[in-house]
Design a protein around this nucleic acid. Structure first.
Lengths: 108, 108
DNA sequence: TTAATATTTAGAAAATTATCAAAATATCAT
DNA sequence: ATGATATTTTGATAATTTTCTAAATATTAA
């Protein structure tokens, strides 16, 4: 299971998560995104760059504006990575693994 | 939809994700976790602290060792947050939202 | 071309995070 | 109590990230 490392790094910042949350309501220009944030437009632009690099958003020019939109494909990958932490039990363990009991017992 | 901010921050670091990946194979002591990493045990302990603070792992003492184990409940929360980016379309929009068309047209 | 608006980029400063070495804590065995 | 092992904490330094201001780019409208 592989996820582009930039995805979780991008999701790790609260400002960027807030941007993504806002984008759920519909596409927005860079300027509209920056409204409501304390930090300046240049900083928001920087965050948008990271989100773009991670593949979480895409943008297109519309006149003088850049319109940002969610790119949900990448969310799915992150989703799947998280899900591996649940399905591990359902997959049949290899016989080699079955007899595993090293110096650290796995249960008190 | 709320997720403890520390969760995504914790997931944002590659070393911590590697620790979680390793823990999928079964519970491990702090020492066993640190094997195979370039960085020292003190640093791993620091990372384990962050994972614990985020609620992604728990640990119990077993003699001289601390045994770390995944705590999957918190993964579910992160999972659900990510899923909100898909289910947004299925939820009926409020009438107020329907007539929304500001200075930025949302579609060419 | 010039002026105006929208956004990004560059460079530096501030804030945060990761890492290490050394000291401290906890448990086990003697 | 002393010594050994396992892990964490502390304090300092290094590396990364965030933010800012100012300058640069791109588009539109005269």
């Amino acid at each position: 299971m592989e996820v582009h490392p930039l995805v979780f790094k991008a999701l790790g910042d609260p400002t960027r998560r807030a941007i993504l949350d806002r984008l759920r309501g519909g596409d927005l220009s860079a300027g509209d995104i920056s409204h409501g944030f304390e930090i300046g437009k240049a900083s928001i632009s920087h965050h948008l760059n990271l989100l773009k690099a991670a593949g979480l958003v895409k943008c297109r020019r519309q006149g003088q504006q850049q319109i940002y939109t969610l790119h949900t494909t990448v969310f799915q990958e992150a989703l799947q990575w998280l899900m591996t932490f649940f399905k591990e039990q359902t997959e049949a363990p290899s016989p080699k693994e079955a007899g595993k009991s090293g110096k650290n017992g796995s249960r008190g």
